[in-house]
Design a binder for these strands. Structure first.
Lengths: 106, 106
DNA sequence: TTAACATATGAACACATTTACATATGTTCA
DNA sequence: TGAACATATGTAAATGTGTTCATATGTTAA
């Protein structure tokens, strides 16, 4: 059995706990502020204040949302002096966003 | 418009309205009941009652969520007599789910 | 150490979302 | 037509989420 079957792997029915986890993951992507943060830092890392200024939002709002992204391992953190720089965790994140964009822009 | 350009679309920074739309799309995936419905009907179409029984939830709950999926064009609808059969709209939907699963299961 | 700055966090409010119950709408068949 | 069934919808309650304000924590440099 052919390539056909290797494509089948993902079509097995995931059990319910996995689906709960998956819903939680998509929930994180389902907020425009968090999406904007992710897109903003996708090219290069940025400090919290820098992100807040770029998006024209409160520093605390950004900080709260960065925590959500951190908890879900979607961003990387690096301290340099007083500032803390955030960047996207991996290409996976970008891929998920791009896949969604594909759906919308088609 | 060259192929080059069409591939580039996704790596440009999407403007804010698109990100709002994108957030709305992910919001739909960010609920376990809707995810379970999508996974349940991903192999073959199912009637509303059948879905409700499979997931052991109220018929009205399923119906409400199916409307959300319908409004977001994620499911296809087919009437046959008294029953209405739902199925996933396209492979795109499955891909988005699989991509999320990849992130979780790695 | 203290002042100045960057980030994180707690609490509260406003708003959105999910679900269940009751009921309406739509379809078939006698 | 009316009874029986399948699906959709309105409403209300419970729960969850995002944002702001005030303040705490942590870092640097004088």
């Amino acid at each position: 059995m052919s390539e056909n079957q290797s494509k089948k792997i993902n079509s097995e029915i995931p059990d319910i706990e996995v689906l709960f986890e998956l819903a939680d993951l998509f929930k994180v992507f389902g907020d425009s502020t968090r999406l904007r943060i992710m897109v903003t830092i996708s090219d290069n890392e940025m400090s919290v204040l820098n992100i807040a200024e770029t998006l024209n939002m409160e520093q605390s709002t950004i900080s709260h949302q960065l925590r959500v992204l951190r908890q879900n391992k979607l961003v990387r953190v690096r301290r340099e002096g007083k500032q803390i720089y955030y960047s996207l965790d991996d290409d996976h994140v970008k891929k998920i966003i791009d896949m969604g964009l594909d759906h919308i822009l088609e």
